[in-house]
Design a protein around this nucleic acid. Structure first.
Length: 533
RNA sequence: GGCGUGUUGGUCAAUCGGUUAAGACGCCUCCCUUUCACGGAGGAAUGACGGGUUCGAUUCCCGUACAUGCUACCA
């Protein structure tokens, strides 16, 4: 066992080794979302970093569902999260669905575990019962408010003014308990202690304990809050490295104290607080609303809120390749130090190092995200793309109308101008059906008798063309253009408009070849009729 | 307000005290292409501010400013 980890450590970059070799334990990381809605791209990035770290260190990646808030529970959110991870290719080793040696992985199913630990803290004098009602708390916050901007905390300055096992006599507390008065258990934050923790990304961070409030550990309904649950479960599940968003930093001292008070300090995971992903304009955390407002997805996949039936677009449905999505997220807050930007998941596993993760938040840039996808489309072979694009074609044409053979051929012709999967329809629809709109205006002004004559005659020539392919069509065109006193340039655009409907698409002769003789002649004739009228 | 964290071009970012301060996205120009792209060649654009430390600071330290996160019986 010992040898195994020495071996693994020797493969690690210098700084990673520091973080891992300190312990002879197997690396275990976890992603712990609460099932309250769509999976935010920041969440996916946290998953990614967890996953990469676990893989690189031969560790386990655990998915734990933090569903301790009954009020915020949303049906379907957990399955949705699992599906997102699957789509991204970041599948956990242990999860509620898959199970594992530390099951259950849903905190609601672990409810019974937490009370004893909370009680242990009370017995040791590190926590206490608090009987305050919501109204009591509101009154305290209102009455004790000193100035406009500050909100009084439930802390060492106020706790003796409240109804709890610290301020009340033993008899009173016993009586309240006997009467089944609802209570919570709060941590008793010590006075003027400096709490220091080492963050893998930020280094040493310290807090003054007296500035942190007495956080609720166990709620009145018997459920733990995040603060208790994260510590108990990370301990029980033998988590060695904990990655979470920067927004958790202010409550980190509570967690550190809990590890200490519970007597597990030497088992505390190494923390890494990841930088935030910011909105592109202005500042602040990127939210679902920013996506709606600016027209890009924020969630990994489409999310439909079961209560409002409102659907929020996801990267997947917008036509992103999961590999591109993941690659893009990897680069948002981390870089290899080289000029390389395109990395496969395997490459990321071997190159990723936590010490190269940025401290500062990064603004999300949808244009760059699209660039990644474009890169991946170009690097994906046509046969694979055919399978990915077909659903979008079927959606437009009806299932089965376009054969995979045709699609694959078209993909080869148009892929370099496609950024998102739906672009294949926009860039190639004229291969599958006669264009519905023709940009007549683009050619009408310069239309004249010679052109009319050329196309009228050439159409008939095409009819009898012995071979139907790019070169034959081009040769024929060149031959007849001269006969009408025209130049190639005079007819190229009109021909394109006739076949495509607009000023875009691959080479016209290639288009003619693929759509076939009959369709080519038909489209020329149809536009000719319009122009002649 | 308090506490925490952060700050290199418009955006992502390299630099681990000494560089003409990389590269990418986006933008602009040109070339290629008788379309649109792709591709190629160029271009504009950066160390928040003020003090130190140092022979020398983008880099280390301290202030200030600004930004952001937290300040719930939410995570």
């Amino acid at each position: 066992m010992q040898h195994k980890f020495l071996f693994i450590n020797s493969l690690l970059p210098a700084i990673g080794l520091t973080f891992v070799s300190a312990m002879d334990k197997k690396v275990r990381v976890r992603f712990a979302p609460s099932p309250t809605g769509g999976l935010h791209l920041g969440g996916v990035r946290t998953v990614l970093y967890n996953y990469l770290f676990a893989r690189a260190n031969g560790g386990d990646f655990v998915l734990r569902i933090e569903d301790t808030d009954q009020n915020r529970f949303v049906a379907g959110a957990e399955d949705y999260i699992m599906n997102c991870l699957e789509w991204c290719g970041l599948v956990p080793d242990e999860s509620p669905a898959k199970g594992g040696p530390y099951a259950p992985y849903r905190q609601s199913e672990r409810k019974h575990l937490y009370y004893n630990y909370a009680q242990k803290l009370v017995d040791a004098g590190h926590a206490y019962y608090a009987f305050d009602t919501t109204e009591d708390l509101e009154r305290m916050r209102k009455d004790l408010k000193k100035d406009e901007h500050s909100v009084p905390q439930y802390d060492h300055t106020t706790r003796m003014l409240m109804r709890n096992s610290l301020s009340l006599s033993n008899e009173e507390v016993m009586k309240l308990l006997e009467q089944s008065t609802p209570y919570v258990i709060r941590i008793k934050m010590p006075n003027h202690e400096t709490i220091t923790l080492t963050d893998m990304i930020r280094g040493e961070i310290s807090f003054d304990s007296s500035l942190v409030d007495d956080k609720v550990l166990l709620k009145a309904d018997g459920m733990p809050t995040y603060h208790l649950a994260v510590v108990v479960d990370d301990y029980l599940m033998k988590i060695t490295h904990a990655f979470r968003g920067e927004e958790w930093l202010p409550s980190a001292p509570v967690h550190v104290l809990l590890w200490q008070y519970l007597g597990w300090k030497e088992h505390m995971p190494l923390w890494a607080h990841l930088p935030l992903i910011l909105k592109p304009d202005g500042n602040g955390k990127l939210s679902k609303r920013d996506g709606d407002r600016l027209g890009f997805p924020v969630f990994a996949m489409n999310w439909t809120d079961p209560r409002t039936n409102e659907t929020t677009k996801g990267f997947r449905e917008m036509g992103f390749l999961p590999q591109a999505f993941v690659n893009m997220l990897a680069m948002l807050g981390w870089n290899s130090g080289s000029e390389q930007e395109i990395f496969s998941l395997d490459e990321l596993v071997s190159r990723f190092s936590i010490d190269r993760v940025h401290k500062g938040g990064a603004k999300f840039d949808f244009e760059k995200a699209k660039w990644f996808n474009h890169q991946y489309i170009q690097r994906t072979d046509n046969a694979t793309l055919t399978g990915l694009v077909m659903p979008y074609i079927d959606e437009q044409q009806g299932p089965g109308k376009v054969t995979p053979e045709l699609l694959e051929q078209v993909i080869g012709l148009v892929k370099d101008r496609c950024t998102l999967l739906p672009d294949f329809w926009a860039q190639g629809h004229f291969f599958f059906a006669t264009p519905e709109t023709i940009d007549i205006a683009a050619i009408k002004e310069k239309w004249n008798a010679p052109k009319q004559d050329f196309f009228t005659e050439w159409k008939n020539v095409l009819e009898n063309l012995p071979e139907w392919n790019h070169d034959a069509i081009e040769a024929s065109c060149n031959e007849y253009v001269g006969k009408h006193g025209l130049k190639k340039g005079d007819v190229m655009l009109p021909l394109r408009i006739m076949l495509v409907g607009g000023k875009y698409g691959p080479g016209v002769y290639a288009i003619a070849e693929v759509i076939g003789k009959n369709e080519t002649i038909k489209r020329i004739g149809s536009v000719l009729k319009t122009l002649g009228a």
